[in-house]
Write a protein that binds this DNA or RNA. Sequence first.
DNA 1: TATGAATGAGTGTTCATTCAT
DNA 2: CATGAATGAACACTCATTCAT
Lengths: 196, 196, 196, 196
Amino acid sequence: MTRGDVAGSITRAAVELFAAQGYAPTSVAQIVAAAGVTKGAMYHYFQSKDDLLFGIYDRILALQQERLDAIVERGGDVEDVLRAVCEDVLMTSIEHLDEGIVFFQSQHLLSPERRAEVARRRRSYHDAFAAILRRGRTEGRFRSDVPEALLVAHFFSDVHYLAQWYSPEGPQSADTVAGELAELYLASLRPTPAVE
Amino acid sequence: MTRGDVAGSITRAAVELFAAQGYAPTSVAQIVAAAGVTKGAMYHYFQSKDDLLFGIYDRILALQQERLDAIVERGGDVEDVLRAVCEDVLMTSIEHLDEGIVFFQSQHLLSPERRAEVARRRRSYHDAFAAILRRGRTEGRFRSDVPEALLVAHFFSDVHYLAQWYSPEGPQSADTVAGELAELYLASLRPTPAVE
Amino acid sequence: MTRGDVAGSITRAAVELFAAQGYAPTSVAQIVAAAGVTKGAMYHYFQSKDDLLFGIYDRILALQQERLDAIVERGGDVEDVLRAVCEDVLMTSIEHLDEGIVFFQSQHLLSPERRAEVARRRRSYHDAFAAILRRGRTEGRFRSDVPEALLVAHFFSDVHYLAQWYSPEGPQSADTVAGELAELYLASLRPTPAVE
Amino acid sequence: MTRGDVAGSITRAAVELFAAQGYAPTSVAQIVAAAGVTKGAMYHYFQSKDDLLFGIYDRILALQQERLDAIVERGGDVEDVLRAVCEDVLMTSIEHLDEGIVFFQSQHLLSPERRAEVARRRRSYHDAFAAILRRGRTEGRFRSDVPEALLVAHFFSDVHYLAQWYSPEGPQSADTVAGELAELYLASLRPTPAVE
DNA sequence: TATGAATGAGTGTTCATTCAT
DNA sequence: CATGAATGAACACTCATTCAT
């Protein structure tokens, strides 16, 4: 392994182990053994086990915010933008299933300060998502009879839940699943006929 | 506390602590202190910390299966049945938010045998839910262009996610949220117009 | 089980378990389960786990002292008496192999007072044995060139060791082994030729 | 204590405590206190309390096998060889009385795998001893009217029993006792007169 | 006599982290 | 940069014994 990739291989080993066993039951000894380095080396690159965990959150949050910003930047028809965002988030989540498992399972194990930091960044991410919904509602394209927060939650629940049931080895490809879930979400957003 | 409720008070304390801090970081000492009993007493009623955790799963699984069975038993229009089931599951989940947090966060910490037992019972629960979807599709009431498993996941994702965002102290009542999420779900199930 | 045999069945279960696993690793719960009684019942008949252990020593010591006294009482040629004693001790030990294991393995686990009591009674037992040796030496029948205590130890070592190697399922019967070991012992006692 | 002797001082403390109180009643806390180290240090060098116990067996078994092999290697008159072996085993046992106590008292407390390993090595040690007996019998020097296994047991019973009665503070020196016990053993091995 | 829930001090063991080298 | 011996506080769990019934 080339120098400089030490931190990377430690992070990779950590994600895999945290996803498989959970954060708490995974010992630092297991991580360094899996990464093929010594404890001393790990503590050279990371200040603590918590640091390792936060690093995972940091990467995912940065990645997702960046991708969403890029799509919004491109502009276009609001439904097209939303569909693109949804499919992209879903695809990205499927590509990083392990990180997703860790993300949703271990939030409460972060140190309080870092949990707050993660919450802040997720909120700002959800806000960017909500802004698209708001635009669609203003344009009369999305239903306005349910609270915005609930619509946001309704989408991210699918993202969250992917790791619980989706398997890359299963019959459905990642794009298919991403497309279908996005479609279901958009279907539920369409304004209901006047009578309803 | 009345005599005989020792096991109950231990379980209640455990649910609360597991939900707030996670299973692993919660010590048996904390649980018994919160329940106001001694370690010895706890180990008189439960064989292990894992036993305590499994007890929580056991109760939720039994409760949910029972409620779903009762609604299906009553019969009626398929959409009405499905809406009733969805609202009931969502309401029940809101009433037991702590248990829900524990349920989805700590599955991997159960002993392997018990994890398998939980998986088996959840599968049978999801199967009963899927049977309703199947009936609706046969009757032409629900869309047939996405896999059944994905539709099941699309619903339970909302149930799962409730604990992540819903707060009883928030502006929305439990029934409102349950009604709205059920409505969004049913909206996404309706057959798409021919042109789509 | 008839009333009054409760203590007996507890003792039997205890001997078996102590012999198989040792005193310390055997829990009171195991003993009462094996005996088919409750803890309360056990503590009705025995004051403590130590009491149970001492009961085993008490029975063996009483039995052996009694048998040795009876044989000495009968009198006769000193070598015949000694041979009879040796064979009897060996036979009795084979009949109570489990008790023997417990006896030699768990002495140090008795409470100090009881350990002293056991030591006292063993000493008096060994003294009675030594008295026979002394008579044989006085009569010029046994060698006098080694300390008496060593001759006593040389015999009881065989008794002690039986449980380490003898199996009732093995090829040799109890009497054969008892006879052979007694013979070896007596052979080593015979005065050495003048030249030595 | 010089650095690097940590493991040694732990082992020494353990032998002493195990011999005095038995394995089970001796706590790891007692051992580390006696050795003047912390629990963490102990668990750095030993995987478990059982590991500590097995280490004691391992050393004795290796030492004894080695010494016996060396004596046999030298060759010579069979009775001289046997006497040398017996005296050496007895002397070594007296020099390591504590280890001997632990050896015979705590075998059943080893983990099953390790108990099997100890049994295997003791058997091979006894086999080497039996080979000398066999040679003596073939040469007509030792009696052939009792089973070989019983002759082996008859010797090791004395070794085993030493810790029960011999005290270095007593009147007899180690060599005297070793010499006398070896002599008694050899006396019992000599062929009986023709009439028998 | 007998029960069994309850005690509480104690057990062996783990583990994130530190620090002299 | 990296090591690995050492720390020490915490952990889940056990168990002989008691006592109200």
